[in-house]
Simulated scan of single mutants.
Amino acid sequence: MSRPILYGADYSVYTRIARLALAEKGVVYDFEVVDIFGHEMQPPAWYTELQPFRKIPALKHSDLLLYETQAIVRYVDAAFVGPALTPDTPAGVGRMAQIISVADSYAYPWLVWGVLVPERKGTALTDDALDAAATCLAALDSLLAEPFFLGESPTLADLQVAPMLIYLGLTPSGMTLLERHPRLRTWLHGMQRRGSVQATRYPAESS
């Protein structure tokens, strides 16, 4: 089989989730940069043939083309050898899906777009955004089994949440919010030491 090609951008939370899954499985792949905020806020024209909604990431592997992060990471987990990233019990599968849904539906909009983006632009944060971010972190904290979200081994749930909390921690307000949750901070520090996270670091993490 040919080497997979992942299309995305290093600043993208969802591209990073896919890259983390590939790294955790030990998959060698090619990374082709697609900047959805360039070209007058549009990706290159050729990319719409891969992703009709013009979002990132997308994955091409031989004749298979996938878009949507969850489709990509579940394929990567099933198609390649390496540590399983999906639990082997029905309860574990359900809990993993719940955590991923919480991250997608609530954490990403409020932690990234509600706190990170405006604070890094120098825009004042709204009380609604801070309250919603606090609710997201409290919910995630309550779902954390330790040392990983589902116990002894990382799963797709950990890979989904990690980039969102890493980027949240790049801002003073984000750090303040995280300070209220020592268990989440401990989990996040552990994730940041993993080789997959180190290999996919966004340059802003060093600033």
Rank of each mutant, 00 (worst) to 15 (best):
E32D: 04
A162S: 13
A84P: 09
A9M: 12
S153D: 05
V73M: 07
R183I: 03
Q42M: 14
L22Q: 08
V197F: 10
E32K: 14
A84S: 14
V115N: 08
E152A: 15
D88K: 13
G114C: 04
D30Y: 01
Y167M: 14
P44W: 04
L111F: 03
P203I: 07
A124Q: 09
E40Y: 04
A84C: 11
A21N: 01
R16N: 13
V115T: 10
H39K: 10
Y7W: 00
T15I: 01
L159H: 11
K25R: 14
R54N: 06
R201W: 02
A138S: 13
D141C: 05
Y47S: 07
Y106C: 02
A71F: 03
M175Q: 14
L140I: 06
R3V: 12
V161S: 07
A132Y: 07
M41T: 09
G26C: 07
G38E: 12
D158N: 11
L137T: 11
M164L: 15
Y47P: 10
P147S: 11
L178D: 05
P57G: 11
G94M: 14
L20C: 01
A107V: 15
D104W: 02
E205P: 05
A139H: 05
I56N: 03
A58F: 06
R185E: 07
M41W: 08
A204Y: 09
Q70M: 14
V117W: 04
E179N: 13
F53P: 03
V81M: 03
A91I: 09
R95V: 11
A132H: 11
F31M: 00
V33D: 11
S173A: 15
T200P: 09
L59K: 06
S153A: 11
E24M: 00
L177V: 07
R54S: 12
I166T: 12
I17Q: 10
I99W: 00
G92L: 08
L20H: 08
A162I: 02
R16Y: 01
D30S: 08
I166C: 06
I99C: 07
R194E: 04
L22I: 02
E146T: 15
R74Q: 13
S173G: 14
L177F: 08
V73Y: 05
Y47G: 09
Y167R: 10
R120S: 12
Q42G: 04
S207G: 13
Q51G: 04
G94S: 14
V28Y: 01
D158T: 13
R194L: 04
R180A: 15
Q192M: 15
L125G: 04
R19Q: 15
R16A: 00
F80H: 03
R194Y: 03
R3I: 09
A91H: 11
G169D: 14
H181L: 05
I99R: 07
G174L: 12
V73Q: 05
R193S: 12
E205R: 10
R185Y: 02
M164V: 12
H181S: 10
F37I: 07
V161A: 05
A18N: 00
I56H: 02
D128R: 10
L50I: 13
L130H: 05
I17S: 03
V27W: 01
G190E: 08
P44T: 08
R180H: 15
S12R: 00
E40N: 14
Q70D: 14
A199P: 10
V197T: 12
